[in-house]
Nucleic acid binder design. Structure first.
Lengths: 236, 236
DNA sequence: CGGGACGTTGACGGTCGTCAAAATTAGTGG
DNA sequence: CCACTAATTTTGACGACCGTCAACGTCCCG
């Protein structure tokens, strides 16, 4: 089984509830299947696409974990998101036909490359697909609003608590434990995403541990008191 | 001329280069015209749509100036953007059929309401429109990436400098002076957008004035040294 | 087993938030 | 048009939060 020729139909993909094809009949699902050009593997540390690269595909994550990040002229780095199985990335590239961020695998991953030209032509015929593409992009806009709220108005503890709750909730909706999670990113990457330095992330983790809210061993995080985290995010 | 029945065809609208219809032929332009349900006026302080409201339209701004903002459960407020003539707002509402932010006019405005259902059906037939809708949403995603970089890694002076340059550039591309601008928002609203307190905005303005980079009289800002602002944003 | 990446903790300082007061402007109603 | 009140802006003093720098500890992988 060559990793360039993984052939798992959308109909059999365990991410189909979260991914592109939703609310489609058998025939429509098949047309999506045909559209998907290639499924390929991306090893930890490799980039799926990078800033400046010509935009041709959206990518559906089948397995694995990614970060997207942008770099400013003077070398500042900002993680703009962490993406997991069932999520779609690459929409930043549509507006200028070139990607404006890097997508880097934080663990070995499998992705489905979907040529955007095909998505556009197929979504002219399949209304549910058209609607879905619009929703995915809108969801990303709304997600980023939330990040702006976090970066613009929250303190370090609040940011980290919100981050942990968000990760846990997304993992839970994928069938994992709602309270045990494995971080696939470094403290520095968390810090970049949350607008904090890695030392602050480390210190805040320690504080949560002292307070008995979480247990942390390396990148394994066990949430002991979800309510406490929620109270930190939303002080009454 | 009643303000409920302004009838200016897209073909005659001076925002047509920036707004929805771009790269369309005569007939396609006419179909867009027909699609646009109502053009209406929004007075300063009024909301165009608000959080929780059912989503039905995207809105093109013909004249005027808006802010969009979200409010968290515990009452925190975050301005997520400032929008001016030729820009499209309301895309936050697509994903859940309800708006997730408020859009408030900061000066008297005129908008074109475009039923999203019509946009979707028309964009199935007019490829240029489909492409344009995708680009508008992608542009918003990329813009928000930039805001995340600003909020996550810039200091107060850098944020305000970047903000002024962005406003000036957008106004310039609309035919206004590249160096003279009138702020339509308060210091508090600027601060909310930039993740700073209003006092910090005021102080930073004063600092720029002291350094001869800008002249400020009320909400009138005259950029005296664009290069200096760029150097602040992008330290060598 | 050794080297490098990653994480933790401490001390200290800077940036920006908080609180307060005063100045200036905008808005309202007579 | 003017007086009066509310809103906005400016400025100062002070302190908290988080960044910086440094040292040390831990884990992972070859």
């Amino acid at each position: 089984m060559n990793h360039e020729t993984i052939k798992i139909a959308c109909a059999n993909c365990n991410m189909r509830e979260l991914c592109m094809p939703i609310g489609l009949n058998q025939e429509e699902l098949h047309r999506i299947d045909v559209m998907i050009g290639s499924r390929r593997k991306v090893k930890r540390g490799e980039t799926l696409f990078h800033n400046g690269e010509t935009f041709t595909n959206l990518y559906a994550i089948r397995t694995g974990f990614f970060k997207t990040c942008i770099t400013s002229e003077d070398g500042r780095d900002q993680v703009t998101g962490f993406q997991m199985a069932g999520e779609i990335i690459g929409m930043d590239g549509i507006v200028n036909d070139h990607h404006s961020c890097d997508a880097i695998a934080l663990e070995d991953a499998e992705i489905c490359a979907m040529p955007f030209a095909d998505i556009e032509s197929l979504s002219r015929e399949v209304n549910a697909l058209q609607r879905h593409v619009h929703k995915i992009m809108s969801r990303e806009i709304v997600r980023e609003h939330g990040v702006m709220l976090l970066l613009g108005s929250m303190r370090a503890e609040e940011r980290l608590a919100a981050f942990l709750l968000n990760l846990a909730q997304r993992l839970h909706s994928r069938g994992f434990s709602p309270s045990e999670l494995v971080l696939r990113m470094t403290r520095e990457e968390i810090g970049s995403y949350l607008g904090l330095k890695l030392e602050t992330i480390s210190r805040t983790f320690s504080k949560f541990v002292d307070e008995g809210i979480v247990a942390v061993k390396q990148r394994h995080v066990h949430i002991l008191n979800t309510q406490a985290l929620q109270d930190i995010v939303n002080p009454k």
